[in-house]
Design a protein around this nucleic acid. Structure first.
Length: 460
DNA sequence: CGAGGAGCGA
DNA sequence: ACGTCGCTCCTCGA
């Protein structure tokens, strides 16, 4: 009897896989179901073309990307199984230690995986004052535990226990189970039609949320290794969303900021704090947050939590950001008024999104809709950019008959499994393919490239 | 089996 | 009153 993974790989290499995804795509984006015939497929394409002169390009993109993804899945990624299980054993030891310490502190055994039981221990037995509520009672999430960790050792221990348990169950056990018995590699599923954003998602297992902080997470990431004799090369877009914002808005100052090859956050910091100021690391940190969060239409109140400053000060920073980059402001205003009229927004490549509550009487609903409308063209254009890049890369590779493989995609990052002697030809093709997807007003996309002997190593 | 809390990534 | 989009784990009660 064939195993799950055999079926999975076979499926990806067969037409049925293509058929399945077209069907899902047709349902979701065209509102029709496909009977499997090529005649109907053609007619669906025609109908879609008529429905929206622009939708066709996205449709083409998705169709062409399908076999590219199927190949990535079938090739998979190699894993250092011994190292992974060694880390796993050390993590389990560490978990046991924390467990015992926690029990010793409260003179009682309980299930530390149960938020409900933690709640009882902390707030009823130890009488710690609760800070945050959720649907079922008092929250015991990270934010809460961190706030009391200084005064109560148990909170810190629970935090450590939790992150270790997460690593063990999700990243050690689940990844180990996902290793294919024959290929010894992990073959994820990329879901092409699952997200509302046009991004890919990854499941069985999800390889788009492998942790990378120092310590055990770094070690886990270093278990992802290239094929025998190969190296890993990681190419990731640098500040892709901010660059897309510069292109779409056409703001001269933001464009200049990127053309100057100066650190973008330091530059924004100078506008926020004054030209003659010496920019401290704290100022740069704030500027970085502002650059990052403005894309999401953040308010001063929320930003203040992020940067740990007063709401008034935070509101002022946002105001200065828009003063500094005025066309970003007018771009957003234009975008919103357009969306209110038509009911939708679209990406640079014409991917559409209908927004429901833009004219709602409820101010909260309206704000949510507005943030969604502001963010969508930026983040989603970035998703489209990546898809076009992947297509270009695969086309170029096939034309030149090369042996390296594109094996993973993590939204703004691509991972390649490359024979050492092909590094040069790889570099030429991939950098160009990725950077030439989009360039407007003299701004281009920028790609950072790092090589290494494993995934962690190659993140630079 | 599903909802809810929690935590990992971009 | 306030970030968006994902996936997976665990518990707990129907």
């Amino acid at each position: 009897m064939p195993k799950y993974h055999d079926i999975k790989i076979a499926r990806h290499l067969s037409d049925s896989r293509i058929k399945w995804d077209f069907s899902a795509y047709a349902e979701k984006h065209l509102g029709y179901s496909w009977d499997g015939s090529s005649e109907q497929k053609l007619s669906l394409l025609m109908q879609y073309h008529e429905k929206s002169e622009s939708g066709d390009s996205i449709f083409q993109l998705e169709m062409e990307l399908l076999p590219v993804l199927a190949e990535m899945e079938a090739i998979g990624v190699r894993i250092d199984r011994e190292k992974l299980s060694d880390i796993g054993e050390r993590i389990i030891e560490a978990i046991k230690l924390r467990e015992q310490e926690i029990y010793d502190l409260v003179w009682e055994r309980f299930n530390i995986n149960s938020p409900k039981q933690i709640q009882t221990i902390l707030f009823e037995k130890l009488h710690i004052p609760p800070t945050k509520k959720n649907k079922t009672g008092y929250s015991v999430d990270n934010e809460v535990l961190e706030s009391i960790a200084e005064n109560y050792a148990i909170a810190g221990l629970i935090l450590e226990y939790r992150s270790l348990a997460k690593l063990s169950s999700t990243y050690i056990e689940w990844l180990t189970k996902a290793i294919h018995p024959q290929t010894k590699r992990i073959h994820t599923d990329y879901n092409q039609t699952g997200t509302t954003t046009g991004r890919l998602s990854s499941e069985n297992p999800n390889l788009q949320n492998i942790p990378s902080s120092p310590g055990y997470p770094e070690e886990i990431k270093s278990c992802f290794i290239p094929s025998e004799g190969n190296i890993f090369i990681v190419a990731d877009y640098s500040q892709v969303e901010l660059r897309v914002l510069a292109m779409l808005s056409g703001d001269e100052n933001l464009i200049e900021a990127f053309r100057a090859w100066e650190d973008i956050h330091t530059r924004t910091a100078r506008y926020l704090f004054g030209k003659d100021q010496t920019i401290t690391s704290d100022m740069r940190r704030i500027a970085k947050s502002v650059n990052f969060w403005v894309i999401y239409g953040i308010t001063g109140f929320w930003l203040s939590k992020m940067i740990k400053k007063s709401p008034a000060e935070s509101t002022e920073y946002i105001k200065r950001f828009f003063d500094t980059y005025p066309k970003v402001d007018s771009y957003y205003q234009h975008l919103l008024s357009n969306a209110r009229e038509t009911g939708y927004v679209e990406t640079y490549f014409w991917r559409k999104r209908y927004i429901k509550w833009l004219n709602d009487a409820n101010k909260t609903m309206r704000s949510i809709a507005e943030r969604e409308a502001m963010n969508m063209p930026i983040q989603w254009t970035a998703a489209d950019v990546m898809k076009y890049a992947m297509l270009a890369i695969q086309k170029g590779k096939n034309e030149k008959n090369l042996n390296w493989n594109m094996i993973l995609q993590v939204h703004d990052e691509l991972v390649f499994d490359v024979p050492k002697h092909e590094e040069e030809t790889w570099l030429e093709l991939v950098r160009e393919s990725m950077e030439w997807v989009l360039g407007l007003h003299g701004v281009s996309l920028k790609v950072d490239i790092h090589t290494g002997k494993n995934w962690h190593d190659a993140k630079g």
